[in-house]
Design a protein around this nucleic acid. Structure first.
Lengths: 207, 207
DNA sequence: GCTTTAGGATAGAGCCACTATCCAATGCGT
DNA sequence: ACGCATTGGATAGTGGCTCTATCCTAAAGC
């Protein structure tokens, strides 16, 4: 199929497709001649993946390019999952700000929860975030970290158990990104409801 | 003090202060004459609040204006907390998309957790989000909702217990917004670490 | 041969949060 | 009294992001 048909099938405007081609999100079609290219069903799928990552998960073009490049360069599934997690959960926001400091509270959490002791983005991000909170004078007592991490351990256990490994890499990215996004949002909404409920109880008590 | 001094004290450029005045985030100073205005310490505080909400919490000008307007119009603390929660946890993202449907899964959660049965943004957002997940064919079994909500109940209990009610309304907004943001981020980072840990375990098993 | 389309380049649009410039009116220090 | 500094107000520009639109030439297909 050629550009116009690709546009019609995917529901993405021809101009946007050209944009994605320019930005390297979409591999070029097979050039039949200088002014004619053939696109395949894989292009349609790739476009749908891009759309989902943009519209549902809200990733930027840059982030999407990063993930797709990794996938096309044959990264392992675990690496890919880590990359998806990094952008979906915004683990890179503050990570850069931290230069090697003494206490690594995340290590304590890892030991407490008996999680495998692997260095990871998630761990660095957690440490960086705890440092940030400290610098803002927000107390994070061990008890709270305990409660939080226990809760997240439970949640992650359920999450992972519910995840079935998909066949294609595109599908892995899609389900992982959409799943992580949706589950984290779900968690935040439940947190909101829980907070609101506790706040109401408390203000009723005070009144 | 006049504009220049206000700028120096708060660390916000004069141009930005003018912008905030135009946008109604900062009340105008007492007009001594047509071309001279006096600003008070309250202006400095207000500017610091605006800065924190922008730079730390990442709210938009529009969102900040909404909250400050409510505060200045004498909203109750509970109303203010709800408004802060709405913007900090992005409860309005999908809320509009839902028009009265049958099942209200959030009601079940509220009953299960014995939370006070109040209609709220948080509850609507939760229902809207669950509908969205359903429409994306992401299964949310009752068991998972149970685990999640139990976890969030624990977390909220600790949160609220740790919150001391501040004196000024500005301070309430600041601590609530920064606190909610930091705690929700903390939770997401712990979730990331937990997920990564479980994923590693699982891939090790498979390998 | 004539319309349609591809690919490439370039420019514009619309949103956001500023940032900069220009202005006339006026206050303040000297 | 005079001139510099500052004010409020208006208006325009910046830079990042994701498109969207226009223009062009070369070539394909009927």
């Amino acid at each position: 199929m050629q550009l116009k048909e690709l546009s019609e099938r995917s529901g993405v405007s021809a101009a946007s497709i050209k944009y994605y081609l320019r930005e390297g999100l979409l591999p070029p079609g097979a050039a039949v001649h200088a002014t004619r290219a053939q696109y395949s069903a894989r292009h349609v799928e790739r476009l749908e993946l891009i759309q989902s990552l943009r519209r549902i998960v809200g990733l930027t073009i840059e982030q999407i390019r990063g993930i797709l490049t990794m996938a096309d360069d044959g990264a392992t599934r675990l690496e890919l999952l880590a990359a998806v997690q990094r952008v979906v959960l915004e683990l890179d926001s503050y990570t850069n700000a931290s230069g090697e400091v003494g206490a690594r509270p995340a290590d304590a959490v890892v030991r407490l929860r008996a999680w495998p002791d692997f260095p990871s983005d998630a761990r660095n991000a957690l440490n960086a975030h705890l440092e940030l909170m400290e610098s803002l004078n927000i107390q994070v007592p061990g008890e709270l970290l305990d409660t939080y991490s226990k809760a997240m351990d439970d949640v992650a256990g359920v999450d992972i158990a519910a995840t079935t490994a998909p066949d294609s890499v595109d599908e892995l990215i899609l389900t992982a990104a959409v799943g992580m996004h949706m589950h984290s949002q779900l968690l935040l909404r439940l947190l909101a409801l829980a907070q609101a409920s506790h706040a109401i109880r408390r203000y009723e008590q005070d009144a």
